[in-house]
Each structure stands twice: as C-alpha cells, then as structure tokens.
C-alpha cells in the first residue's frame, strides 16, 4: 500500500485566479467590494442608491451575479453605470474565474470602485475569494437579529456589515441592538452601517466610507 502525500488547498485554483484579479484591480486603482447576503436583503437596492448618490464622487462599475436573469444588470444600468451580468445557471456562488471573465468584458476599466454583487446565499460565497479588497455582508431587518450566529463564517470573513431596511424596524420584532451585538460577537472588527434604501438613511455615510478607501 503506497501513499502519495499532497497537502494542497482544495480551492487553490480559485485562489490563484483571485490573486490575479486582485492584481488587476490594484493596477487599475480600483477599490473592489464583494457584496454578499441572503436573497432579498437589498444588495441591488444598495448598489442602485450608491450609484445615484455617488454619481459625482466616484466612477462605479458593477458585476452582477445571479442564478438566472439579467434583471439586476438592467436595474443598475438605468443609473448609467457600466455593468456586466454573470448568470451562474444554478451555481450558488461566484468563483474567481467567473469574475475575471466578466471583468474582461468591460471595455473601459478605469473605475474608482467596483461592486461584485454575489449570488444571494449566506453560506457558499464565504469560501470563495474573488480578489476583492473587502467582503461586505448585508443583512436586512426582516431576516431577524440572529443571522450572524447562524452564519458565522460569512460574518467572520467580512469586514463591513450593512444592516438594511431599518425603516421597517417599527413593524418587526428584530432588535437592531441584538443584531449589532450578535455580529460583533462573531467579528468585533466589523464596520457597521445602518441603511434604508427607501429613505436613504445611512447611504451617504456608506458612500463616504467608500470614498475614504479609494486608491486615487
């Protein structure tokens, strides 16, 4: 009986492409954010409000990931933002190679900021580095304040948390304080924004933070 020793990372192929993506984003001086959340938490709404409110402040590009349809790309394109849609046809997460192919479809890559909107899923996208500077996890108040405890890997791997749909708080049993505390228990370094895409609460602060992180 012989044994071949391997000791290699299962996702090393993805990690290699992610490193190439990261290099390309840095060369183009683009600050890149990977937006992750469960379906329906408001990722695309946050992209839309950011596109609208930051129009004169930074040049934004968007890669949209969905299991099916171009609906999100159509929504974002209405704001005059260059957007490429990835349709995964069933896959529950984006991989670095999909992002590379999508990124290469932009003719002009001179973005200050690139959003990669991942497939709505709080599990699988945590495992795949896409080459982003930061993962931003979005959780909406309608999902309940226990989500950070139920999906710890995603909250631990993210550096920013957006708590969205704060305008609905009066109608829900979700406690913002509990949600914040649960998230900080998983990851005390999380930078937290509280937003509503209906009232634009918190969107300006979020845009200002992005601006402070830009590379030019």
């Amino acid at each position: 009986m012989s044994v071949i020793t391997i000791e290699r990372k299962v996702l090393e192929k993805n990690d290699i492409v992610a490193a190439e993506n990261r290099k390309a984003f840095q060369e183009n001086k683009t600050f890149t954010l990977n937006l992750v959340s469960s379906p329906g938490s408001g990722k695309t709404s946050i992209v839309e409000r950011t596109a609208y409110l930051s129009k004169r402040k930074f040049k934004l590009g968007v890669i949209e990931g969905d299991v099916q349809t171009n609906l999100d790309a159509e929504r974002v394109a209405r704001y005059g933002v260059p957007v490429v849609q990835i349709v995964t046809n069933g896959s529950c997460h984006l991989e670095a190679s999909l992002v590379r192919n999508a990124y290469n479809q932009f003719e002009d890559k001179s973005f200050d900021v690139l959003f990669i909107e991942n497939v709505g899923n709080l599990v699988c996208p945590a495992a795949y580095d896409l080459g982003e500077d930061n993962k931003v996890v979005i959780v909406s108040t309608t999902e309940g304040d226990d989500k950070p405890l139920k999906y710890p890997a995603m909250f631990r791997n993210s550096s920013v948390l957006i708590i969205n749909k704060t305008d609905l708080i009066p109608y829900l049993s979700c406690s913002l304080e509990t949600l914040r505390n649960n998230a900080l228990q998983i990851n005390p370094d999380l930078k937290i924004f509280e937003t509503s895409c209906k009232t634009d609460e918190g969107i300006k602060e979020w845009c200002n933070w992005i601006e402070s992180k830009m590379m030019k």
């Binding site: 009986m1 044994v3 299962v10």
Partner: peptide, 13 residues
C-alpha cells in the same frame, strides 16, 4: 479550521 486541503492519496499497489 477555515480551509480545505487534500492531504494524501492511498493506492492499492
């Protein structure tokens, strides 16, 4: 405890 690795392969010689 965060990643996944392929450790080794055992062959039937």
């Amino acid at each position: 405890g965060t990643d996944m690795r392929v450790d080794s392969i055992e062959l039937n010689d």
